[in-house]
Every structure is written in structure tokens, then in C-alpha cells.
């Protein structure tokens, strides 16, 4: 990391747990999650905010964690894929991805599931256009998206109890 400015201490909540980590102010949230907190479920696909593999929620909004500097994370609430299930009980979206073939190689899946969870919180009964728009920041090279749409639709009815 660039020298010059020293590391800062960042306090935030990750998956409902208070955490503190040290990072250079311009270090990427993605690296802090993966390297400092060892939460490797968040993936790097492009490093330029195009593919959405590193999607996490920050204070309820979807962000590309490769574009978020550590300094901006102070006092926020972060949700990563590791925090989506309740213990061993999968979130309805996760279960629907398994049942409906929404995950193939799995590398876009963590980001895609966070985008889907976020979408269903905003639109519990989304239209096809809303699903397409809601997931358009997350690229998938395996599925052609059809099975992902089907997974989201299947999760609709189920997700209220998980919300």
C-alpha cells in the first residue's frame, strides 16, 4: 500500500459483529474483508467496479467493495455473504439458488445473492424488469441469467420470513 499516510483504525459492524481493523485510508474494503477479517466469500472479479463479484451491503445499500476506501467504512454496517444465512439455516435466496440452478461456478454467486437479497427487500414482489435492473450490476458468465431470475422469483414468497 502507498506509504506516506499511515494506517488508520477502522471500527465498523460486519455481519452484526463489531470489528476493528487497521488499514491505509485508501485501502480497498474488499482487501480489508478478505485479508484482515479473512472473510473470503467476497470475490474480486475485475477490480474496477464492473462485475459486481465483490458486492456487499454497506448501511443497507449495495456497493462494489473494490471501490470503497477503508476510510469510508468507519461506523458503517457491512453485510457480506457470510452473514446472509442464519447459522446453518440458509436464506430463502440461497436455498432458491441451489434448487433452481442459480449458481454454477459460484464466483459471482456471493455478490449476486447480496444483490438479490437487497432487491427483494426493496421490492418483495419484483417484476421481471425490476429483477433485470436489480441484478444488472452483477455479471455472470455461466448461467445466461435465466436460472438466476428463476431463483429470485422462487425466493419471493419465501423471503419475507427471512427479511
Amino acid at each position: 500500500m502507498p506509504e506516506g499516510s499511515g494506517k488508520i483504525q477502522v471500527r465498523c459492524t460486519v455481519n452484526n459483529k463489531a470489528v476493528t481493523f487497521e488499514a491505509y485510508p485508501m485501502a480497498r474494503l474488499l482487501d480489508a474483508l478478505r485479508e484482515e477479517l479473512r472473510l473470503t466469500g467476497t470475490k474480486e472479479g475485475c477490480g474496477e467496479g464492473e462485475c459486481g463479484a465483490c458486492t456487499v451491503e454497506m448501511d443497507g445499500a449495495l456497493v462494489n467493495s473494490c471501490l470503497v476506501p477503508a476510510a469510508q467504512v468507519e461506523a458503517t454496517k457491512i453485510l457480506t455473504i457470510e452473514g446472509v444465512a442464519s447459522g446453518e439455516r440458509l436464506h430463502a435466496v440461497q436455498q432458491a439458488f441451489i434448487t433452481n440452478g442459480g449458481a454454477q461456478c459460484g464466483i459471482c454467486t456471493p455478490g449476486m445473492i447480496l444483490a438479490a437479497v437487497n432487491l427483494l427487500r426493496r421490492f418483495p414482489e419484483p417484476t421481471e424488469v425490476q429483477i433485470r435492473e436489480g441484478l444488472s450490476g452483477n455479471l455472470c458468465r455461466c448461467t445466461g441469467y435465466t436460472k438466476i431470475f428463476e431463483s429470485v422469483v422462487a425466493a419471493c414468497g419465501e423471503s419475507e420470513r427471512d427479511a
Partner: peptide, 20 residues
Amino acid sequence: SVPRKEGREKVTGRARYVDD
């Protein structure tokens, strides 16, 4: 259409890729 063998690891972020 049985559940994908490694599906649970993939949807929970537990699947370990080389960079992990």
C-alpha cells in the same frame, strides 16, 4: 434435478477458490 453437489458451499461463500 438433484441439488448441485457443492451448491451449499457456493451460496454461503464457503467454497474456497485459489485466491482464498
